[in-house]
């Protein structure tokens, strides 16, 4: 199973980076999104895949009878998902403002800091 996920992660990274190297601002954002999916999945897979059920105690139990999925990567990823949403939102607004100010959405033309 891990092998399958490893391949998926590889595709997500490659696709994300390829999009980030294109010239459109929107593609840059989408690439960033793919890349963060890849990173999240990487953490998740590296933490170990266990089909032992969610790390949630059943009613009435005080300790886990079977080993559940690892809660730590989950907590990390939860944080990461929300943060990457904020990053996407911020990037979107930033690029929109850039586009309106500079008048181009071509990343290659953005190398000068002076606006005309």
């Amino acid at each position: 199973m891990e092998v399958v996920l490893a391949i998926v992660i590889g595709f997500l990274y490659g696709g994300g980076l390829y999009l980030m190297m294109r010239r459109n601002l929107i593609q840059l954002i989408i690439g960033l999104g793919l890349l963060s999916h890849g990173a999240n999945l990487l953490i998740f897979t590296a933490g170990g895949l266990r089909k032992g059920g969610a790390p949630i105690l059943a009613d009435g139990e005080k300790v886990f009878s079977t080993i559940p999925a690892d809660p730590l990567p989950q907590a990390l990823i939860l944080t990461s998902i929300v943060i990457s949403f904020a990053v996407t939102a911020f990037a979107l607004v930033l690029f929109l403002r850039t586009y309106q100010t500079v008048g181009t959405d071509d990343v290659d033309e953005l190398k000068e800091t002076e606006t005309e």
Binding site: G10, Y13, G15, M21
Partner: peptide, 14 residues
Amino acid sequence: IAASVGITISLLVL
């Protein structure tokens, strides 16, 4: 370049 990254990352995961 993107493919090389993808392959490296896949290997890294494994």
